[in-house]
């Protein structure tokens, strides 16, 4: 999963701090979200080095300082492109979870873009499948075809339920489930 792209896309909703970004992903995806907090902060640090985000320290009374993260122009462009469906949809679940939060009005469009990308990929895999009969390639392609078919069928179901999905309230994160490492 492109953690960098996912974190950048979450910041499209406005400046935020790392702990809140992680909490949002946790509460939206529940048990499927298994990324360690240390990986999130490492990714955010790299994003800052790459000039995708800037950070500003904010003092808090009786609590550790927070770093408020903000997208740069370049970061915003990358985040928007990812959300709009450019590039491989390596994890449609995460992309749609984030679209639901940061751009509910465009949710249908994101689903349609993903469905189109998956359909084109399915066609491409089917063409490849017809052209190979060597080694384990047919079976490897069959496996990928089956996975892509599942995505296409699942996206059709999501599209059918999109209105309900967008209006569903956010899950409340249970206290203390974000891992032991707190936001810096």
């Amino acid at each position: 999963m492109g953690l960098r792209d996912a974190l950048a896309a979450l910041l499209l909703a406005g400046p935020n701090h790392g702990y809140q970004l992680m909490s949002t992903l946790e509460s939206e995806l529940g048990p499927l979200w298994e990324t360690r907090a240390s990986r999130v902060y490492l990714t955010l640090a790299r994003m800052e080095q790459e000039g995708l985000i800037t950070s500003a320290r904010v003092r808090q009374d009786n609590r550790p300082d927070r770093r408020i993260l903000r997208l740069t122009t370049r970061g915003r462009s990358i985040a928007q492109s990812w959300l709009d469906g450019e590039g491989p949809a390596d994890d449609p679940v995460v992309r749609l979870a984030i679209a639901r939060v940061v751009a509910p009005e465009d949710f249908d469009g994101v689903v349609a873009a993903l469905a189109s990308e998956r359909s084109a990929r399915l066609q491409r895999l089917r063409q490849m499948r017809r052209q190979t009969n060597a080694g384990f390639q047919p079976e490897a392609l069959d496996a990928e075809i089956a996975r892509t078919q599942a995505d296409v069928r699942w996206l059709a179901l999501v599209r059918d339920r999109s209105e309900e999905i967008v209006s569903r309230p956010r899950a409340q994160k249970k206290h203390g489930t974000a891992g032991s490492e707190r936001a810096g």
Partner: peptide, 15 residues
């Protein structure tokens, strides 16, 4: 009603 991207013909060498 929606259009879909269509995969181009591919070359077997890609594999």
């Amino acid at each position: 009603e929606r259009s879909q991207r269509v995969a181009e013909r591919i070359d077997a060498r890609e594999l």
